[in-house]
Every structure is written in structure tokens, then in C-alpha cells.
Simulated assay, not measured.
Amino acid sequence: MGKLSKGYVQIYTGNGKGKTTAAVGLGVRAAGDGYSVFMVQFLKSGSTGELESIKKLEPNFKVFRFEKKRGFFWTLNDSEKAELKLEVQEAYRFCLDTLKNNKCDILIMDEIMGALSNELVSKEQLLQLIEAKPHNMELILTGRNVPEEIIDRADLVTEMKEIKHYFGKGVPAREGIEY
């Protein structure tokens, strides 16, 4: 590890499409240049096209998931939410260990802001992660509703803003395009 002389904190946020896509794109570019990329996905347990693509980039680009397959957060009962919180906390500990032990060049925490919004991790925990980031590692966080304290600690924040979306016309999420 340690190809980067200086790593930054990047955030992809907003109500528009493309947050994960942007993070994966950066990871693909970096893996192609020989960087080690870890992506930890939060609140995502189903099959997606990017997982199949990323498998072809191993060992440079690896995806980690800690959650068992289940429905959307708002469909879960209290015991399922409690179980999910334990899984998310395990993923958080993995990320913290990755940072503290400098295990990759780029760490992507996909949909970590969704985990924060659903109170599965705390704002203090995210600030602790940013603080633990080694000087030579890039940290990428995705998801909506980023608290100001997190934005203040980031070096780059990109907002995906929805101008128009075909979902409004009843088009469902499509394999290979939205997942």
C-alpha cells in the first residue's frame, strides 16, 4: 500500500442518480493503475452489475459486504433492524481497521450516509473514521443527507442533483443501468 503521496476525503451525495457509479468509476480507474481499492457496501445486499465487473478487477479492487440479504430498511421489523445494526457495526469496525492498518490505497464506503441516516452508525463514528484515515489513503463516502460536520472535514464534495428522472414516469429500476 501507499502508492498515493497524499490521500483526500471525497463525498458523493445528493438526490440524483450516480453516487455509487461515480465511486465505482474512480475505483475502476485506480485499480487499472495498480492501486489497491476496497469498497464496503452498506445497506446493499442484492446482486448488482458492478459486483460482477469488479470481480474481474480482483485482486486490485475488492468489494466487502457484511449484511445478509433482506428488504429495504423501512420494510424491516425491529428485530431485523437490530440485526442489521450489528452487521453495519461489523462493517464499520472493518473500515476502521482498514484505515488504522493502511490496508489499501482507496477505501470506498458506499451508502455510509444511508447507514448514518438510519442510525446504524453515528456521526461521531464517521468523524472517527475520517480522523483515522492515513495521510496516503483516499477515503470516499457516498449517500444522501451528509451532516455539515462531515462536509466540513471532506476535501471534495460532489452533489448529484436530480433535474429529471424517468422514475417519475413509472419506469422501474433496470438491471445493468440502476443496479
Rank of each mutant, 00 (worst) to 15 (best):
M109I: 01
F167Q: 06
K6W: 03
E138C: 09
N101I: 02
L99W: 05
T98W: 01
E175Y: 04
V157R: 01
L86F: 07
R153M: 05
K103N: 01
P134G: 14
K81V: 05
V88N: 15
E149K: 14
D110A: 12
L57P: 07
Q10F: 15
K169A: 03
L43K: 04
R93T: 12
N15W: 00
E178C: 02
L107V: 12
I112G: 06
E87C: 05
K62A: 10
N15Y: 00
F61Q: 10
K103I: 00
I150G: 03
K44F: 09
T13R: 12
Q125N: 08
L141T: 11
K123C: 13
L126D: 02
K133D: 08
E50G: 13
K164M: 08
S53N: 09
E138H: 13
K103P: 00
E90V: 15
A91H: 13
Q41A: 05
K6R: 11
Q128M: 11
L86N: 12
L4S: 11
E124A: 14
G71M: 05
C95S: 12
Y35N: 05
H165L: 03
L4D: 06
K19W: 00
N60F: 09
A31M: 13
V9A: 10
C95N: 03
A23I: 02
R153Q: 14
D110N: 14
S79R: 09
R93E: 13
K62L: 13
M160Y: 13
G168K: 10
V63E: 14
D155G: 15
N136Y: 04
L43W: 02
V157N: 02
